[in-house]
């Protein structure tokens, strides 16, 4: 099967969840006075739900252009890390594939793609297929909500919110690489929960992501120093190529 079709199929449950959220969000945008054309431009050009939500909350003419830009920078800072983490998927690919593919990166297809990559490899087309499905799901549902208004039922959303969390928990499990991940993940969770209360926007995701990954680096350095032989034998994937030979 073609990779982009596989990517689409793998993202179907998350696209359904995104449509439910998108419908409610579209209604909200209509209530805030956002026109369908403005919503369509945001859906296609920005394609980032939580940042769109923040912008819509600030939507009254004349729009505060710079303040909105800053808010979007804070909310979407996590995409810098998400982009960095996709390096193995795009490794060796031409720049045009990176430039086109990265526009279609959302939290959902990113997580599905990374999990797929860990379980036997994948390619940018898998990511892009998922991204196209999510873009269509997101755009149609938000525009429908914007145009139809309150006719869309809100309670339907709750069960799907739970589905969203369940899928993400399942994906987390597939990213687990072994007990060396325990401390970094605990630190990430702690920093994210604390950061959610202390930091603006969605900066808590970047805080947890960076703090957890830094923990992994420090942990590895400490292990190298205390048990160098064990590390070389047990965790050869972590050892610098060629370095093992110089120690022998």
């Amino acid at each position: 099967m073609k990779e982009w079709i596989r990517g689409m199929r793998a993202n179907i449950p998350l696209a359904v969840s995104a449509m439910a959220y998108g419908g409610v969000f579209g209604v909200l945008s209509g209530n805030q006075g956002v026109s369908w054309a403005e919503m369509l431009a945001l859906d296609l050009m920005m394609f980032a739900g939580s940042a769109q939500l923040v912008m819509i909350e600030m939507w009254s003419a004349p729009l505060p252009v710079v303040a909105m830009g800053l808010a979007v920078l804070i909310v979407n800072m996590r995409y810098l890390l998400i982009g960095a983490s996709l390096q193995p998927v795009f490794d060796g690919r031409p720049l045009w594939q990176k430039a086109l593919g990265m526009h279609l990166v959302a939290d959902e297809n990113w997580a599905v793609t990374i999990a797929e990559h860990r379980n036997g490899g994948t390619c940018p087309a898998f990511l892009v297929g998922g991204g196209m499905l999510l873009l269509v799901a997101w755009t149609t549902s938000t525009i429908a909500g914007n145009l139809l208004g309150g006719q869309i039922m809100e309670p339907a959303r709750w069960g799907l919110d739970f589905a969203f969390v369940a899928v993400f928990v399942a994906l987390s499990m597939s990213l687990w690489q072994g007990r060396d991940d325990l401390l970094p993940w605990v630190i990430a969770a702690g920093l994210a929960v604390a950061g959610e209360h202390l930091l603006p926007g969605k900066l808590y995701i970047a805080l947890g992501g960076i703090g957890g990954a830094m923990t992994a680096v420090i942990q590895e350095m400490v292990q190298m120093r205390t048990h160098p032989a064990e590390i070389r034998d047990g965790f050869s994937r972590l050892v610098v190529p060629g370095e093992g030979k110089t120690h022998e």
Binding site: R78, L81, I82, A84, S85, Q87, P88, D107, A111, I114, R118, V165, F168, V169, L171, S172, L175, W176, Q177, D181, P184, W185, I187, A188, A189, L191, A192, V193, E196, Y204, I205, A206, L207, G208, G209, I210, G211, G212, A213, M214, A216, V217, E220, L238
Partner: peptide, 18 residues
């Protein structure tokens, strides 16, 4: 490399747990 290897897991945990 270790930082980038661990990053997907820690970002996903940070997205999900709160």
């Amino acid at each position: 490399r270790r930082f980038l290897d661990c990053l997907p897991g820690t970002i996903l945990v940070s997205l999900t747990v709160p």
